[in-house]
Amino acid sequence: MEEKETVAEPTEKKTHDKNEVIIEIRNLKKSFGSKDVLTDINLTVHRGENVVVLGRSGQGKSVTIQCIVGMLMPDAGTLKVFGEEVAELKDKELKELRMKIGFLFQSGALYDSMTVRENLEFPLTRVLKLTDQPEIDQRVEEILTAVGLADAADKMPSDLSGGMRKRAGLARTLIIKPEIMLYDEPTTGLDPITSREISELILDMQKKYKTTSIIITHDMECARITADRIVIMNDGEYIEEGTFEGLQKSKNKIVQSFFKDIS
């Protein structure tokens, strides 16, 4: 008899505080030259919530999270993080806000000339200005253990597999203990098994560090595992939102297209 593949059940999602708004976006617009990328973005994210933004490539999914950290400034609308309008923050205030936000890039953004340990020490010494080596060592050991890389501290990024690089990038982002995590296509380029492992790790880290997260993806398995709520993006706006199971029953043909191959 042919052995069937066993699919791991997603880790139980944690509840979030529906009364505390962490990110509030209203009528956000952003263009690049004559190209309108964001036409009318509206989104509210509550403390402890994992929100997945689902959309096809080239839709501008990443532009919103770049606006959240002030890498890009919107052309119109409002974007508040912890109740503060990001576009109105002065340089010092923006730096303070960024200290509370972790941004995991698609590549992991590791420094290739540094070991994993040195990559993790960098934000502790340069961003948090820590000087106590025992504390630095303790933080590095703790986060590497949390992401399953306890034995990889002295390896170079070039010696890591794609999944290990993602884990190391996540560790470096989490080591400053951000309140908000922004994930830009966290499973891109990974095989299905490793993608599932990274998705479950994102969920585990949300529970362990009590983060509020936005996850940009077009990976349906990642969305299924990580999302408390999913918003669907099309033509520069969010057209529908709900749980994974709820959106599977949507009558909207654009939404249906994302779920047509999901059993």
Rank of each mutant, 00 (worst) to 15 (best):
E3I: 11
E5G: 12
T15R: 15
T15H: 13
K18F: 04
N19K: 11
V21E: 14
I22P: 04
I25Y: 06
R26D: 06
K30W: 08
T39C: 08
D40F: 09
I41Q: 10
I41H: 04
H46P: 05
R47F: 07
G48N: 07
E49W: 10
V52D: 00
G58M: 07
K61D: 01
S62H: 07
T64K: 01
C67L: 04
V69W: 09
G70F: 01
P74S: 00
A76C: 06
T78K: 11
A87H: 01
L89V: 08
D91F: 03
K92C: 09
K92W: 03
K95T: 09
L97D: 04
R98G: 14
K100V: 03
K100Y: 01
I101S: 11
S107T: 14
L110A: 09
L110G: 09
D112R: 05
T115V: 01
N119P: 06
F122K: 05
P123Y: 05
T131I: 00
P134C: 13
E135M: 09
D137I: 02
Q138K: 15
V140C: 09
E141K: 15
E141T: 11
I143E: 00
L144W: 10
G148Q: 05
G148E: 02
A152Q: 03
G163D: 05
R165P: 01
G169T: 01
G169K: 08
R172G: 05
L182V: 07
L182Q: 03
L182P: 12
D184E: 01
P186Y: 00
T194K: 02
I198V: 15
L201P: 13
Y209R: 12
T211P: 11
I216K: 05
A223W: 00
A227V: 00
A227P: 02
D235V: 02
D235I: 00
D235R: 14
E237L: 12
E237Y: 12
Y238M: 14
G242V: 01
E245N: 10
L247V: 12
S250H: 03
N252C: 13
K253T: 13
S257K: 07
F258T: 01
I262V: 15
